[in-house]
Design a protein around this nucleic acid. Structure first.
Length: 426
RNA sequence: GUCCCCAUCGUCUAGUCUGGUCUAGGACACGAGAUUUUCAUUCUCGCGACUCCGGUUCAAAUCCGGAUGGGGACGCCA
């Protein structure tokens, strides 16, 4: 039985890099019918916070990562670490220095391990200093608690970031001293920020919930993150979670650090929006708008359904739907100044808008086919190109030069709103 | 500074293990064009990379060595 773990430290939000580490663990567990365990590394009492833990767990759930057992908290296991440390002292493998317990590293040896991704890695123990096991304040160090927990939790594969490669030889020494079986290790490459170096706050959003907030879908994030360091081959890129689970294997993860590219994430998010069944997208956009407190009195789900269906092909994030919502359900929305200037401030503009208005008021039926017919006829009568009516109308009713098909928009808005908005420019 | 890891288009990657099918494939971005009432959709085309130097070989992106570059670690942080 394969058992992997994700071991976050609740001293900050779950960021992109950690989420990817968690994801690779989770994918590997699900792929191999194994177990995915959570261990909370809260030994640093000063920095660990409950709210961070909640956010981390919430982020994992949001990204579909379910775990199989109750999470293990290191803060509840201090006695266990102490016992192991005392035992090492008794056996002469560690010594006390004040309240601290320190592991003695024998020089002139080699600490080595076989990494699933990198192959064999060897380090001379001459490079390794004696290691603090228990700190003076009675808490264990990372490398000590990590070894004991991975062993006691029967973790078979330790999948973690590249930055832990140099910790591993130290941990190997402790595994051996304690007589524990050594798990398999897979050190996955880090995610870099655009200027190289670690991903950090300075270079845009790093926390998973910020991406949620920006209107990215969890399945798109999972898909995108998986592709940073792994590829299913056959030039495939859009893969729903189920498909990824089927194909993913840690041994296929590559060794090179990857730079996070939000443009590609956005493109991918747009693909997921485009391909999502309409009713699901309607529900999800509605939830998103509710969370953002955008939805007010005038909201109508049937109209929204129509709106979503004409906009879904051209929308990249859920957040884009906020502006769309406002156009259809609010009377006051932003007008793009330049667009107004370009299409509605010409000498003849008022006259044209008036004619449009009168035409629309006279229509027996206000559906897109009738509207389009009337507009094309009016353009003919005025000896104008249809575009010369269409563009100003679009700006007048939506404030923007871009959007869904104009006649779709007009039908969805309904005659009253369209006429009122045209009046603003008559 | 010491140790470790890595090295294909601007970015993510395929190919590297098992050398020839790679004058290096795909995607994002970018540029041009087409369609469309506009566009943020779609389609077509284009741009664009094997870090360098040696070696092995009939043949190297692929194997070996070195250099350079980048990243990581050197905490009683995790």
């Amino acid at each position: 039985m394969i058992r992997v773990r994700f071991a976050p430290s609740p001293t900050g939000y779950l960021h992109i890099g950690s989420a990817r580490t968690a994801l690779f663990n989770w994918l590997y567990a699900r792929h191999s019918n194994g177990e995915f365990i959570l261990r909370i590394e809260d030994t640093d009492k000063a920095r660990s916070k409950e709210e961070y833990l909640d956010e981390i767990l919430g982020s994992l759930r949001w990204l579909f990562m379910n775990w199989d057992e109750e999470p293990v908290f290191q803060s509840k296991r201090f006695e266990i670490y102490r016992r192991y440390a005392e035992d090492l002292v008794k056996r002469g493998l560690a010594y006390k220095e004040g309240e601290a317990i320190i592991f003695r590293v024998e020089k002139g040896k080699t600490a080595s391990f076989e990494d699933i991704i990198h192959g064999r890695i060897e380090v001379s123990t001459d490079e390794i200093k004696d290691q603090v096991l228990m700190k003076s304040d009675g808490t264990p160090t990372y490398n000590f608690a990590c070894v004991i927990d991975d062993a006691e939790m029967k973790i078979t594969h330790v999948i973690r970031g590249d930055d832990h490669i140099s910790n591993t030889p130290k941990q190997i020494l402790i595994y051996n001293a304690l007589g524990f079986a050594i798990p398999r290790f897979a050190h996955i490459p880090l995610i870099l920020s655009t200027d190289g170096g670690r991903l950090s706050k300075r270079h845009g959003a790093t926390s998973i919930f910020e991406y949620k907030d920006m209107g990215y879908l969890p399945e798109a994030i999972v898909n995108y993150l998986t592709l940073m360091g792994w590829s299913p081959g056959q030039d495939r890129e859009i893969l729903p979670p189920d498909e990824i689970i089927k194909l993913f294997d840690v041994k296929d993860v590559n060794k090179t650090g990857a730079t996070f590219d939000i443009d590609k994430l956005s493109w991918m998010n747009g693909q997921y929006i485009k391909d999502m069944p309409l009713d699901e997208l309607v529900a999800r956009t509605e939830n998103f708008l509710k969370e953002k407190n955008v939805i007010g009195g005038g909201f109508d789900r049937n109209i929204w359904r129509g709106v979503v269906s004409v906009y879904k092909e051209r929308t990249r994030t859920l957040k884009d739907f906020i502006g769309v919502h406002d156009i259809f359900f609010k009377d006051e929305f932003e007008y793009d100044e330049k667009a107004v200037e370009k299409y509605l401030k010409k000498p003849e503009s008022k006259n044209i808008m008036s004619k449009c208005k009168i035409t629309l008021e006279g229509l027996p039926k206000f559906d897109k086919i009738s509207i389009e017919g009337s507009y094309r006829k009016l353009a003919d009568d005025l000896k104008l190109k249809a575009a010369e009516l269409i563009h100003p109308t679009r700006v007048a009713i939506s404030g923007k030069t871009v959007g869904a098909g104009l006649f779709d928009m007009m039908e969805l808005l309904g005659r009253d709103k369209v006429v009122k908005r045209l009046e603003r420019f008559c």
